[in-house]
Amino acid sequence: MTSSIPQDPLLRAKLNLETAHFPWKELERYFAAGMVIVVSDELDLIEVATAIASDDKAAVLQWMNKQQLSKVPDDLAQAWSDSNALLWTVVVKPWILVQMRAS
C-alpha cells in the first residue's frame, strides 16, 4: 500500500497467523493502559503491523498524519463497549493493533 520500505514476507506471514477476533470487552484493560492502537479500515492490518514491527517510521508517521493510525479515542472505546464489538487484532509488542472491519 503505502509502506516506504519492502516488507519482510516471513514477518508478514507470521503476523498474519497471529491475527484473531477479540471482543472489545477483553481488550478494555489494555485500552486503559494506553496499549491499543486503532487501524483505519482503509489500511491492511497486517501491512501496518509489519511496518510497526519493522520500525518503518515513515509509513507509521504518514498513517498517523492522515489519522489512519492512532490510540483508540475514548468515544470510540465507549461505542465499541456499548455494541459488544468484535475486532480484528494483532499484537506488535507493546501494542495491540485493532481494526473494525465491515464484512
Results as ranks from 00 to 15, higher is better:
55 D>S: 14
79 A>P: 00
55 D>K: 15
53 A>Q: 07
30 Y>H: 15
101 R>Q: 13
56 D>P: 06
72 V>L: 01
84 N>G: 10
4 S>E: 07
52 I>C: 00
50 T>R: 05
42 E>Y: 09
39 V>A: 05
69 L>R: 02
98 V>H: 00
24 W>S: 00
52 I>Y: 02
101 R>W: 02
82 D>Q: 06
9 P>L: 03
47 E>H: 09
3 S>H: 15
98 V>K: 02
39 V>F: 02
34 G>T: 09
30 Y>V: 00
14 K>Y: 12
20 A>M: 10
12 R>H: 14
75 D>H: 10
66 K>R: 14
97 L>K: 06
66 K>F: 05
32 A>P: 00
101 R>V: 09
4 S>K: 14
20 A>Y: 06
6 P>E: 08
93 K>R: 13
73 P>Y: 01
11 L>S: 08
23 P>S: 12
33 A>T: 00
88 W>Y: 11
102 A>G: 00
3 S>M: 10
18 E>T: 07
86 L>K: 06
20 A>I: 06
27 L>Y: 08
91 V>S: 09
65 N>W: 04
56 D>M: 07
17 L>A: 15
70 S>L: 08
17 L>M: 13
72 V>E: 01
38 V>H: 11
100 M>Q: 15
42 E>K: 14
76 L>W: 06
46 I>Q: 01
75 D>S: 07
31 F>H: 12
36 V>M: 08
45 L>T: 03
18 E>C: 11
52 I>A: 01
81 S>A: 11
29 R>K: 13
100 M>N: 13
59 A>E: 06
6 P>M: 07
59 A>G: 04
45 L>R: 00
45 L>P: 06
16 N>H: 14
86 L>C: 03
90 V>W: 04
8 D>H: 14
95 W>F: 13
2 T>F: 05
12 R>C: 01
42 E>V: 04
96 I>V: 13
28 E>T: 14
17 L>I: 00
42 E>C: 05
83 S>M: 08
19 T>C: 09
74 D>Y: 03
18 E>M: 15
16 N>G: 12
68 Q>M: 10
57 K>D: 07
98 V>I: 08
8 D>K: 11
88 W>V: 00
72 V>F: 01
38 V>C: 10
10 L>H: 14
32 A>N: 15
68 Q>V: 00
15 L>W: 02
26 E>L: 11
35 M>H: 13
90 V>I: 05
78 Q>P: 03
12 R>F: 12
14 K>M: 15
11 L>Q: 09
49 A>Q: 01
7 Q>W: 02
92 V>F: 01
70 S>P: 03
74 D>R: 13
56 D>I: 04
99 Q>E: 08
6 P>D: 08
43 L>K: 05
32 A>F: 00
101 R>P: 02
58 A>Q: 11
93 K>S: 15
64 M>P: 01
15 L>E: 07
41 D>T: 09
53 A>H: 04
70 S>Y: 05
27 L>W: 07
35 M>G: 04
6 P>W: 05
16 N>M: 10
57 K>I: 11
1 M>G: 13
65 N>C: 03
30 Y>N: 11
23 P>Q: 14
102 A>I: 06
19 T>E: 10
